[in-house]
Computed example of a mutant assay.
Amino acid sequence: MSKEISNITRRSCLSLLLVRAASQAMSAQQSAPVGATTPAAAAGPSVGAASDGARASQPASQYRIGPRDVLAIRVTAPDIVAQFSSDAMEVDECGMIPLLSVQNEEQGQVRAAGLTTSELQEQLRKFYTKYKRNPQVVVKIREYNSQPVAINGAVMRPGQFQMRRPVRLLELLQFYAGGPTERNGGRIQIARMPVLGECASQQQVAAASNAQGEDAYAPQFLLLNLSDTLKGDEKSNPYLQPGDVITLPEAKEAYVVGNVLRPGPVLLKDDHLTLTRALAMAGGLMPDTKKGSVRVIRVDADGGNRQEIPVDLAAIDNHKAEDITLRPNDIVDVPVSGGKRLLRSLVSGGASSAAQLPIRVIP
């Protein structure tokens, strides 16, 4: 299991880097907006380093502007003031936007990140009162680029999404990703980048890394049980943060062959799938099974060592032997008595051939 999580971790880190790079060039038309038409959640994350308490108190319908969002700003007094207006102004990596056509001012920029459009409108209105009498400001978000999340793995509709409001994991999973597939492994992993602070310089990041260790700015990985998330458990249904990469690993497989109703792969959705449970998942034993000659064929992950484990199902039924826990790629071979197998194959073959003959009426 540790090796599986390690592999998932490496894949998620790569996915996270790709998401962060892609989000810089992604517009609202190129990604699916989350929260544009569904009811708002009760609370959630905001852009910036707001505390959990502050986030919980924010209205769910209020989107907080963030870096790389594109704004449309219109200033009127009472006619439109073209030199103060812009159809497309991108918030920079530090969360700032320029104050247009302002000269000889100490303040050439204003912080937009972390504000709602209403709050930014009021800030700009107060600033422009020194240039225009009773100016009116309207701010609209043209492109949502600052809160990307991605979900992949065993889901119906994997993809990348832009959040426009606080969104919980369960909402993204069920309403936007279509829910988990049958091949899910029963776990959810969230790769989460730490909050570095807006526009942190390379020197600041390096200094913090030296002070706190090399892993100070490494991604944080949250491991959750899918069943708890689907129940809406508070701890397993967190609010998502910008840059989160959610992965539902696919379940590993073991194989049941031989004298069972439905031979084939069985999914190992937990670490405790026993031999008898796997046989039940395969439909159970067929008649004439040699219960004392069942075997589990186990091969190492690298394909090196091959081990055959004899199993007596009758002894397991009588609590005289341990029920073996299966591992990924185990093969359970369920034998049948040789003579009875031949007889049954002849009978079934004859019945199959007879079924293909034309039906005639005997007068």
Rank of each mutant, 00 (worst) to 15 (best):
H319N: 15
A314E: 14
I309N: 05
V311R: 00
D312V: 07
D288V: 04
D323M: 09
I297Q: 12
K290N: 08
E308K: 12
I316C: 01
R298V: 11
A301P: 02
P310F: 03
D317V: 03
T289I: 06
Q307P: 00
R306Y: 04
I309H: 04
L285Y: 01
T325Y: 15
V299H: 06
K291T: 04
D302A: 14
I309K: 04
L326A: 08
L285K: 03
L313Y: 03
G283C: 11
G304L: 00
G304S: 03
G284C: 09
A301T: 13
M286F: 03
I309Y: 10
V294M: 08
K290P: 00
D300T: 14
L326G: 07
V296Q: 07
G283P: 12
V296A: 12
I309P: 01
D323N: 14
M286C: 08
K320Q: 15
R306T: 14
M286A: 11
V311T: 04
D323R: 05
T289F: 04
D288F: 08
H319Q: 15
V294S: 03
G283E: 13
R298M: 08
G304R: 03
D312H: 06
K290G: 02
T289V: 09
R298S: 09
D317L: 10
G292D: 11
D323H: 06
D323V: 09
A301K: 11
R298K: 07
K291S: 05
E308W: 02
D302I: 06
L313A: 04
V311W: 00
D317A: 15
G292V: 05
R306K: 15
V296W: 07
G284T: 11
K290M: 10
E322G: 04
G283Q: 12
A314I: 01
V294F: 06
R306G: 06
D312R: 09
N318G: 07
G292P: 05
A321P: 04
I324W: 09
I316E: 04
P310R: 00
P287Q: 09
A315L: 14
L326Q: 10
N318V: 08
K290F: 00
P310W: 02
K290R: 14
L285R: 05
D288W: 03
R295V: 13
I297D: 02
T325V: 15
